[in-house]
Design a protein around this nucleic acid. Structure first.
Lengths: 232, 232
DNA sequence: TTATAAACAGGACGATCACCCTGTTTTGGA
DNA sequence: TCCAAAACAGGGTGATCGTCCTGTTTATAA
């Protein structure tokens, strides 16, 4: 019985413990913000290095190429942003429709508070990179897919509980995400949150027309302000 | 009586008459296609010069800077594309809702025929340039505004003729454009026309729920295939 | 014709880009 | 303690970018 048995679980590779300030995380922070504010092509690695305070060697140690950095931002940051901003609120809301309404409301309020519109991180990158690289496109498309699936799942749950009827889950999810993405596009171009407000109003009108079978008493409004979309 | 009287109307500046092949037009053709396929930043002037077969001197004679070229593409091509693809069809349709439906249908069919998705030219440029330059942003926002106004005007006309009621024109227009733009974003990311189809289905379902007051008998479907979105 | 300016041609320039390469320091396991 | 590998530092490199600049051709007005 050698003492190796106790040491075996320690065979993990030499890793962090170093990294007192988290260089990789810092680069991801800066890259996420820069891609959101200026886009992928307009953000040079020199800019990112300066903003993050890291050397060229450090950056390329963690991210061999700029594309690898983009992939990391997409997988580790954009996906999380969609999860926090959309998926979790929709899951926690009283219903799918109410969840969609709440997110529109919360994002519109946040944009009005900020005074400017940077757009949807996923949508921004999707436009710039979908045709540029198949791998990046797939990563972005998967996030869109997860996003839609969460809404569709919520519709199915609502239907099982008798809160929703006659609605195709996939169609509704696609529609909700499309309306949001498109509204954010126009909000970004106009630098105005009104597109979100108008779409929310149109969404509620079409919902109220279909609510003749719903006994719900208008559904109470929960105050839920998102923390995403912070100024740089 | 000198002969000068006859010559006076000829005082117009020396211009075209030259330009046998239309160099400016050729550059705009190539730039429009390249911005659509690869985006603004990813399209170098060298690429455009090579593709158009023009020299650096010629290009910079017609467009002093790359930004000026982008502005010309936006004002002279993107605006026209929106007019041809959306505004004219909506004006000619039996109603605003039917026009929106037809455009969705036509674009979806065209994308399926092509087998790939380049996205909406306006939306593509809006995402890349809205935060990059105020002048370009304004030009793009104005096209969005014209687009929405045309739909809203059509709703108002429908209401005057008793074909529509209880619909806020601005909200509906914003909603229709947002749903289209967002659906095209996802179609581009997924390289699949289904987002258009799904949104069309969701749009028709919500319309049918509100159609209890409409005496229209489902509205016949007009075959209208768009010529935009040609392969490069 | 002659003068003038527009319409091009095409090379040159400085800046910037993403990436590489050679060291040096640090870390964790033996 | 020793060593191999990871974690950085930082200057260099070739390519490419948008723009400029100097000529040459072409068309129009006088």
């Amino acid at each position: 019985m050698s003492a190796e048995i106790d040491n075996r679980p320690r065979r993990a590779r030499a890793k962090r413990i170093n990294d007192p300030e988290g260089m990789r995380r810092k680069v991801l922070d800066v890259a996420e913000a820069a891609f959101q504010a200026r886009g992928y092509h307009a953000s040079s690695l020199g800019d990112l290095m300066a903003a993050a305070g890291v050397s060229s060697g450090a950056l390329h140690h963690h991210f061999p190429t700029k594309k690898a950095l983009a992939l990391a931002v997409i997988d580790e940051r954009v996906a999380a942003a969609v999860e926090d901003t959309w998926i979790a609120p929709v899951r926690q809301a009283a219903s799918a429709r109410e969840g969609v309404r709440q997110v529109f409301e919360a994002v519109a309020a946040e944009l009005e508070r900020q005074g400017f519109v940077r757009g949807c991180p996923l949508n921004n990158l999707a436009h710039e990179l979908s045709l540029a690289d198949p791998e990046l496109r797939l990563a972005l498309a998967n996030i869109f897919s997860t996003w839609r699936q969460a809404i569709a799942d919520r519709i199915v749950a609502d239907q099982r509980e008798g809160r929703e009827q006659g609605t195709d889950p996939r169609h509704f999810a696609m529609f909700a995400v499309a309306a949001y993405s498109g509204a954010m596009s126009m909000a970004k171009a106009a630098q105005d949150a009104r597109p979100l407000r108008d779409c929310l109003a149109a969404l509620e009108q079409s919902a109220s027309q279909a609510a003749s079978s719903e006994p719900e008493p208008v559904a109470r409004r929960r105050r839920r302000v998102l923390r995403r979309y912070s100024a740089s």
